[in-house]
């Protein structure tokens, strides 16, 4: 049932212990009369990956797993569950907790309806390559959150993983444009990136609206670029770097790079340190006269 690929043996035992405790805690939560379900992870049928799992009773809690393949972000299911009456248990690792914090801040779920179990994560593994997942290389947890329980101190693991992605900043403008054209042309506009994103909780996406009609639906490269650019800007300052968009993309578009570059710029230009970490307002929803404005020839 347990697939650690790069995680060393000693840590593997540690993960297994955590899994046991996760199941105990979830089962105990599900004994509560007001408990609806506990959202965590289970192994996929081929046992190569994990997927979200909604445990409804203590027996089902035994299907929950915790290991270095727990990529999905359980917090992203919460907005659509906000009308449910009762308590929802949810297991979160650092990146998920950042998303959860943003969701609570944006009124998408009420803290009082949640039982939050914090899991100290030591880095996830990419099931295809066996290497540490790229998002974990720049992880900024522990995240400050009022967890109901945790499986240990929410500390930052000392991961010294280099970014393996193409260095976009080193590219010329033309090269970068060519890179993104090629990358975004793979998109088939299936919307998986949008639907899996914790931050895409608008009741109706502007790309679905017919009046006003924000976007054409021709599906050509211009449309694809428009879609991804708007989405990236929309998430600037809210993206918590969980990379679920890239994982969900069936065509392998490097959406993680797109969002990451916006996060980098936010840090560089506005000293904005990433969503879900502080109580700073989302970047693009604030205005300060000291904001740099290089586009209009202002101070860099």
């Amino acid at each position: 049932m347990f697939h650690a690929i790069r995680t060393p043996g000693r840590m593997r035992d540690q993960l297994k212990d955590m899994q046991t405790r996760l199941r105990e805690i979830a089962a105990a939560f599900l004994e509560r009369p007001d408990a609806l379900f506990f959202i965590g992870w289970e192994m996929t049928p081929d046992e190569k990956e994990t997927r979200p799992f909604f445990a409804r009773n203590p027996r089902q809690a035994q299907r929950l797993v915790w290991n270095d393949l727990c990529h999905p972000n359980p917090a992203s299911y919460l907005p659509r569950l906000r009308d449910r009456e009762g308590m929802i248990g949810v297991a979160v690792k650092g990146c998920d907790a950042r998303a959860l914090r943003e969701l609570i801040r944006a009124n998408q779920i009420e803290r009082k309806n949640l039982f939050v179990l914090g899991i100290p994560c030591t880095g996830l593994v990419d099931p295809n390559t066996g290497a540490i997942a790229s998002r974990c290389a720049e992880c900024q947890y522990p995240v400050d959150f009022d967890y109901d329980e945790t499986l240990g101190p929410m500390e930052t693991p000392a991961l010294t993983v280099e970014r393996s992605a193409p260095d976009l900043d080193a590219m010329s403008l033309q090269q970068r444009r060519a890179f993104w054209k090629q990358e975004l042309d793979k998109c088939i506009r299936c919307d998986a990136c949008r639907k899996i994103c914790y931050g895409c909780y608008c009741p109706e996406c502007i790309f679905e609206m017919s009046d006003p009609k924000w976007a054409t639906n021709r599906g050509d490269l211009a449309d694809k670029i428009f879609y991804h650019a708007v989405r990236a800007y929309h998430l600037a300052g809210r993206c918590v770097g969980c990379d679920e968009c890239a994982r969900a993309c069936p065509m392998g578009v490097r959406l993680d790079l797109l969002n990451r570059s916006l996060r980098d710029h936010a840090k560089e230009m506005f000293s904005f340190d990433g969503a879900g970490i502080t109580d700073e307002k989302p970047l693009l929803r604030t205005f300060s006269t000291e904001d740099p404005d290089p586009f209009f020839g202002g101070d860099e």
């Binding site: 907005p79 944006a106 009124n107 998408q108 009741p203 109706e204």
Partner: peptide, 21 residues
């Protein structure tokens, strides 16, 4: 209201205190 997510961004930016969630 059909399109509103209730995220309160508007409430925060309104300089006149005219928006309430």
């Amino acid at each position: 209201p059909r399109l509103c997510s209730g995220c309160a961004t508007c409430e925060a930016v309104c300089p006149f205190g005219a928006i309430e969630i």
